[in-house]
């Protein structure tokens, strides 16, 4: 199909303009990308989990050092390091640390429950990531204060099988 302006300089209304064609292609493309993600947890699901745990209490963006590789070649084994700043005393310690994966089939990854007998709320685990996504850490202190940290990990090969 050739598109040529009519003699009066306007485009012929019954032909597809270049913009129509491009928009159409984009809609199809976006739909194709979204469909396989429907089965995965979304940021909304992480929010929901947090609401269940903490009923929407505000969180400060500090105290947690969350360390994951920026690019994970193998989503089956991704090292996750964390360190929550706290004196770990009987009256002031890190009670719980949760990790969430926004792009996994199940949003919760792990939940650490500490006692003041632990000298520091720090450690490493190895996790599975199904796709490129953001990992969210939430720490709850003994006084009820909440802290959070986020890190995006690009995953080359997903780790959920299929």
């Amino acid at each position: 199909m050739t598109i040529e302006p009519l003699a009066d300089g306007h485009w012929d209304g019954c032909q597809f303009s270049r913009r129509d064609v491009l928009t159409g292609a984009m809609i199809v493309g976006v739909a194709a990308c979204i469909a396989p993600l429907a089965a995965m947890a979304a940021p909304a699901q992480v929010e929901e989990e947090l609401k269940k745990l903490y009923a929407g209490k505000p969180m400060a963006d500090s105290k947690i050092k969350l360390d994951l590789p920026s690019i994970a070649e193998n989503g089956l084994v991704v090292p996750l390091n964390f360190d929550v700043e706290s004196p770990m005393l009987d009256k002031d310690y890190v009670k719980n640390v949760y990790f969430f994966a926004e792009g996994n089939p199940n949003p919760v990854v792990a939940a650490f429950h500490f006692t003041p007998l632990v000298p520091k709320a720090s450690g490493q685990i190895r996790i599975r990531l199904a796709q490129t996504q953001i990992i969210v850490a939430v720490a709850e202190m003994s006084d009820g204060k909440l802290y959070t940290a986020k890190k995006e990990v690009k995953v080359t090969i997903g780790g959920c099988g299929g």
């Binding site: 919760v108 990854v109 792990a110 429950h113 996790i127």
Partner: peptide
């Protein structure tokens, strides 16, 4: 005999789970 910490693991934990942490 005194509990130091517990950790709940979910399916997102890799096979042959590794975990490091600190104790006094």
């Amino acid at each position: 005999g005194n509990e130091l910490m517990t950790v709940d693991w979910f399916p997102a934990i890799s096979a042959n789970p590794y975990q490091s942490f600190f104790v006094r």
